[in-house]
């Protein structure tokens, strides 16, 4: 009596065709760690599930011109095992490694974490800080979209009907660059981020920060960039004064809610604390 159907296309074109032509609600299945929970609870009632994992290239990590291409359906456990990516983007890797349990890691993906469009998604602030780009495919072809432009609100994305993410591109890191991601949860594991902070930065030979990008999660309807925080630490050696300014800038961009996971006041304060701590880690990693 179920009207739900399942299909696993084997090419991008086939997938786009199915998605664009779908009657009713089509849902992409990559890792399934959000979709299956929503299916079971009845929060989503799709008419068709499109499993993208059989599309060539959508699983796996490639190093291209010093940068990285991460297939959208690559399980996060695979991301965590990639030595080159871990060395170049330890923040992105540690953020993707925080999504769910070991069991969830074996399935969950960056694309799923992003397109589920939760403000608390762990990998998203790290990807935004690292200037990751999503390669979106759809009926009108392929386009590269900065990750921060994908999520438009809780549960909502800028993807049009028929579109899905094929892969993520991380640029070749500048010399003496690194990144870090920290989140706060009430336990040590198995919780949704109350606040998440991704920091990516570059230092010069003297240890002065020359470039920085900071993104917060779980403190607003979408992930938010902290340009004033970046400005506050660029030109510094991350001294206490710069850190204090970063803390204030991070708090200033917060527009959180009070819910079962944290209060407005707590989220704002923790955003400042974690911004300082994540910046300190990234700075050390960059050789500052």
């Amino acid at each position: 009596m179920s009207s739900l159907s399942y299909t696993a296309p084997t090419s991008v074109n086939e997938a786009v065709g199915i998605l664009a032509g779908a009657q009713g609600l089509a849902k992409i299945l990559s890792g399934g760690t959000d979709l299956l929970v929503q299916l079971r609870s009845g929060r989503t009632k799709p008419d068709i599930i499109v499993d993208t994992k059989k599309i060539p290239g959508i699983m796996g990590i490639r190093e291209v011109d010093g940068g990285f291409v991460i297939g959208a359906a690559t399980p996060c456990s695979v991301i965590g095992e990639h030595a080159g990516l871990s060395a170049a983007y330890p923040g992105v890797v540690e953020a993707s490694g925080l999504i769910g349990s070991t069991q969830v890691q074996g399935r969950c993906t960056l694309a799923g974490n992003l397109c589920n469009a939760s403000p608390a998604a762990d990998s998203v602030p790290a990807m935004i800080a690292a200037r990751a780009t999503a390669i979106v495919v759809g009926p009108s072809g392929q386009r590269a979209v900065p990750v921060e432009q994908i999520v438009t609100g809780p549960g909502r994305t800028s993807l049009a009907k028929g579109e899905f993410i094929l892969e993520f591109h991380l640029p070749k890191p500048a010399p003496h660059s690194s990144d870090a991601y920290l989140r706060f949860i009430p336990r040590t594991e198995m919780d949704i981020a109350v606040v998440g902070v991704g920091v990516s930065l570059t230092v010069d030979a003297a240890g002065v920060i020359t470039d920085a990008r900071i993104a917060l999660g779980a403190v607003a309807p979408t992930q938010v960039l902290v340009p004033d925080g970046a400005a506050a630490i660029i030109g510094s050696k991350l001294d206490d004064a710069a850190l204090a300014k970063l803390d204030a800038a991070a708090r200033a961009v917060c527009n959180p809610i009070t819910d079962k996971r944290g209060t407005i006041d707590f989220r704002i304060k923790i955003a400042g604390v974690l911004a300082r701590r994540a910046a300190t880690i990234a700075y050390k990693r960059a050789g500052g």
Binding site: Y6, G32, L36, V37, P75, S77, Q103, G106, R107
Partner: peptide, 27 residues
């Protein structure tokens, strides 16, 4: 739990431990 939060349904699939409640049978 049926939501991947307890691990009681853990199985190994192609060498990786997963929650079988978060995998479709068809997969």
């Amino acid at each position: 739990c049926g939501s991947g939060d307890c691990g009681a349904c853990s199985v190994i699939m192609d060498g990786r431990v997963v929650c079988s409640c978060l995998v479709l049978g068809v997969e």
